[in-house]
Each structure stands twice: as C-alpha cells, then as structure tokens.
Design a protein around this nucleic acid. Structure first.
Length: 246
DNA sequence: GATGTCAAGGCGTCCA
DNA sequence: TGGACGCCTTGACATC
C-alpha cells in the first residue's frame, strides 16, 4: 500500500491528519513506523500475525475507544492489507502473539456452535470473511476443540470424584455393619468374663444372669442391678446360644 | 515474577 | 501419500 493510502486510512480512523506511516527498513523486517507529533509507534511488517496485536496496542496508546469499530476497522485494514505478511515468515523473525478481535472471535464462536469442524470450502470462506488466513481459522478450530475437550474432561473428573467419595462412604458403612453382624454371631471370648455391670436379673428365675441384651440393646451397666450373691456363675451368658443359662 | 491464556509449531496417527 | 486431525509444547502477552 502506498504511504498516502495508509495515512488516509489512519486519518479517517483517528479523525486527524497528524498520523502517518513511514517505511522503515530494518535488518530483520520491513517495519513501518506510525508517526505523530508526540508518538512514534512501530507497526509489524507485512502480513505479520502480530499486526492485530500491535493495532490494539496502537489504539491503547492513542487512547482510542477500545470498542470503536470504525477505528478498529481502519487500523485493522492498515495492518491486514498494507502490512500484510505472507506465511513464510518474511520480514518477521520472531514469533509474535496474534490476538483475534472481538468480532473475529464472536463469528468463529458462532460457527463453532454450528459445526465443530470445517470442510476446506467453509474454512476458506470463513477465512475470507474474517480477513484471516485459512490456516489461522483451522488452528482456531483445533484449539477450540481442544478447549471443549478439556472442559468436558474436567466435568467428568469432578463427577468421578464425587462418585468415588460416595462409594468410599458406603464402603465404610458396610464394613461397620459387617463387623456388628459378626460380633452378634461370634462374640469375643472376653464375653465369658463379663463385668458385673453387664449382668442382669433373669426374668424367669429372678436370679442374677449375664444379659444377652448387652449386644442387642443400648442398656448400660448403670441401669442394671449390681451383681452379688450365689448363683452368679450358673447364670453366665452363653455366647453360643445367645442366651442366659438358667 | 508467578501464573493463566491462547495462537501457533511440531509430530504422530488415521484415512481416502 | 498428502491432508486433516489430535495432542503436546512453545512463546508472547495479560493479569495479579
């Protein structure tokens, strides 16, 4: 693009005639310098992926409205047509970060909602519409699919985590229940040497006896009469029949 | 300066 | 065999 055209484009976008672009040869690139009385900003070389990024920076430094679409279009036009660089990295040795504009991202998102993949024809059309290279559109869709997959993986992971916690708790509960059931059928041998507090009065003979209820009720030793006197040994609780032997 | 985000590079795999 | 794709990584930039 001719210098006058660039100046015109910037003049339109900035509402001022004070901004100009001047060709500035450099060893590594054909860079351009945006000149204005108090400002000298370098813009990326032809077709550099960094052009949109730099344009955004230019807008910030010129205190332009970030959502000024007219200014954006004009500046972006300068960057994408006047300073457009080919794929072969000509004029730009270092890799620069490209930031897609809000409009570009929004349109790409819309298309992604419709189809998460593109055929070559759709890709070319979209690239043309967005003023991007087909490769850039392709890369955007690849990265977008990757992000979607990552998000889904995170959701699945969270779900599995909760499921694992629930199962662990259920497992603990079942273990406790199993131990209780085992203790009913096969009490510990220590049960033969029951403390006095674990004894009670046999309802039929009214003698002191070991109470099977100790394992089936919540009765505490404090509720029961104290053991004393003869007959105690004859009424010990039989762990194998679960009953007191009268 | 640590960290997150995201476009892009590199490489392997699949398939027409 | 070349193109499309996925996955992982890199590097620039933004944010805190």
């Amino acid at each position: 693009m001719e210098q006058e055209e660039v100046g015109l484009a910037l003049g339109l976008s900035l509402g001022s005639g004070h901004h100009q672009l001047k060709e500035q040869p450099s060893p590594s690139s054909h860079s351009c310098t945006l000149l204005e009385p108090s400002l000298s900003l370098r813009l990326p070389a032809k077709d550099s992926p960094a052009a949109p990024v730099r344009i955004a920076a230019v807008k910030r430094e010129l205190r332009m409205e970030e959502d000024d679409e007219a200014a954006d279009r004009a500046l972006y036009s300068v960057a994408s047509s006047a300073l457009v660089a080919p794929d072969d990295d000509e004029g730009c040795n270092s890799r620069k970060k490209l930031r897609l504009t809000k409009e570009q991202s929004a349109l790409l998102e819309d298309r992604f909602k419709e189809h998460s993949t593109l055929n070559p024809k759709q890709k070319a059309a979209l690239a043309k519409q967005l003023n991007l290279r087909p490769r850039q559109v392709e890369v955007w869709f690849q990265n977008r699919r990757a992000r979607t997959k990552l998000k889904q993986t995170e959701v699945d992971c969270e779900l599995l985590k909760r499921c694992c916690e629930t199962l662990t708790e259920e497992n603990r509960r079942l273990h406790r229940e199993l131990q209780q059931l085992r203790s009913f059928n096969h009490p510990h041998p220590a049960a033969f040497f029951m403390p006095a507090a674990a004894l009670s009065i046999c309802p039929s003979c009214e003698r002191l006896t070991g109470a099977p209820a100790t394992t089936t009720t919540t009765t505490t030793g404090a509720d029961r009469p104290k053991a004393s006197g003869p007959g105690r040994a004859a009424h010990l609780f039989n762990p194998f029949t679960n009953s007191a032997a009268c």
